[in-house]
């Protein structure tokens, strides 16, 4: 029994260790654009936020959504549309995009959450395909061309985001906020119940928790944050396209999360960074057309050998050797 007992000083130590880690990462995030191309970093951050949002559902809610592309795309299209047509400032555009995705999450959730496992995945996939075809037809999405030339605008109507540096810090701030919200959600009274449901759903029911409602709230938060990622991405690249709505995208976010480590807080960030980096470097070289195959191979290796993902395996290794 002593192996798992944490006395309070050990607990304090791990808390302060975590604080240190977050401080270092924050610092790295602030200086990163001095060394690395900011647009690449922004792409990583957007996908990292997307994967973190997805992970909240799979890793902590225990539900595999195969339709998260719909939320990413909705955020992007709505933000692009209101920024271009209504001329709102970027932060308002992002807010509206995020809220629309959360609302869509509510509808998806209402329809899918009673189902479990593969049925949940299938219903979310079907609904997201519906959304995809809607966006192919709808006039405001620009069809095959997408929305091009979305202006980045001026933050609060004051700070121009046209240059990559200010844009980067804006995106970084959004990422930190989104990440903090997920972190808090996991470590909240709500997060406790979510974990209980994942651990033993019938028991949670028998203790008087209405599990469907908890899952629905988690799904809406997850969808909203996926929308936030999509909204932000549409301003970074000044583009919203059908690529984001395609089921490939739903698959990609699963890959990122599993690769990095599902159910770990940093896993999705590491997974997203790995996938985006691979895509970027490979697509410039002679292997360009092999990118999907290489990603598929990585996926297979990950599922077969490194089941807990990069971060999960590191944690296991650290636990075995240093504690």
């Amino acid at each position: 029994m002593t192996t798992q007992t944490l006395d309070s000083s050990a607990m304090d130590k791990s808390v302060s260790k975590n604080r240190m880690l977050y401080a270092v990462l924050l610092f790295l995030g602030l200086v990163a654009p001095l060394a690395i191309y900011p647009v690449f970093l922004m792409k990583v951050l957007c996908f990292a936020l997307f994967a973190c949002a997805f992970n909240l559902m799979l890793g902590y809610g225990g539900l595999l959504s195969f339709g998260h592309a719909a939320f990413l795309a909705t955020g992007g299209y709505i933000t692009g549309h209101v920024v271009m047509q209504w001329g709102v400032t970027p932060e308002i555009g992002i807010l509206i995009g995020t809220l629309c995705s959360a609302a869509m999450g509510f509808v998806f959730g209402k329809l899918a959450i009673r189902r479990q496992g593969i049925y949940f995945a299938m219903i979310t996939l079907a609904l997201s395909q519906l959304v995809f075809f809607l966006y192919v037809q709808a006039p405001f999405t620009g069809g095959e061309n997408g929305l091009q030339g979305i202006p980045r605008g001026e933050l609060f109507g004051v700070i121009s985001l046209a240059d990559n540096m200010p844009m980067y810090y804006f995106v970084f701030a959004i990422f930190v906020l989104g990440f903090a919200l997920i972190h808090r959600t996991i470590h909240s009274p709500f997060g406790q119940i979510l974990k209980a449901i994942r651990e033993n759903e019938p028991r949670a029911v028998s203790l008087g928790y209405d599990v469907d409602k908890y899952k629905l709230v988690a799904f809406v938060i997850s969808a909203g944050l996926a929308g936030l990622a999509g909204s932000t991405k549409s301003l970074v690249f000044q583009l919203s396209s059908l690529t984001d709505a395609h089921w490939h995208m739903s698959g990609e976010v699963i890959l990122m999360t599993l690769l990095g480590g599902v159910g770990t807080i940093f896993g999705p960030v590491v997974g997203a960074a790995t996938v985006v980096t691979l895509q970027n470097y490979l697509s410039q070289g002679p292997l360009a057309s092999w990118v999907p195959v290489i990603l598929g191979l990585i996926f297979v290796i990950c599922v077969l050998i490194f089941r807990s993902g990069i971060v999960g395996e590191i944690q296991k290794f650290a636990k075995k050797n240093f504690s």
């Binding site: 919200l181 808090r184 959600t185 470590h187 909240s188 009274p189 709500f190 997060g191 406790q192 119940i193 974990k195 209980a196 651990e199 949670a204 203790l207 008087g208 928790y209 409602k213 908890y214 709230v217 938060i221």
Partner: peptide
Amino acid sequence: LTVMDNVRIALQRKLGTSFHFWKSD
């Protein structure tokens, strides 16, 4: 979850904060 957390899950319901995802645990 820890043994303590198991019991706290049950106790937590009557606090009425179980949907508060913005509050610290």
